[in-house]
Amino acid sequence: MKPEEVKHHVKIYINVFVALLFLTVVTVGISYIDIGVGPGIALGLLVASVKGSLVACYFMHLIDEKKTILWTLFATVISFMILIFVPLSTMFSNAGY
């Protein structure tokens, strides 16, 4: 990586940092507004996901990572989703019984 590129990266890091600080304030802020539990959870997770993506994409350089790693993480995300949602749906499908 050339020095100019690194310097360009450093600028991005500062911008991402500012965005993360801002989003932290936002997420604490909305928790004080009474919008009901459901929408509150959705909004809170949305903000957290945006923050998480910023960290993963820019600090961890996933935005221009090699294919091998992206495929591995793709598989990981799928099994993560299965792990989170399938046990839950077995619980809810009880309701119709």
Binding site: T27, V28, S31, G44, L45, A48, V55
Partner: peptide
Amino acid sequence: IFLFPVLYLL
């Protein structure tokens, strides 16, 4: 980043 809202805020 995920633990914070999940445990403290929601």
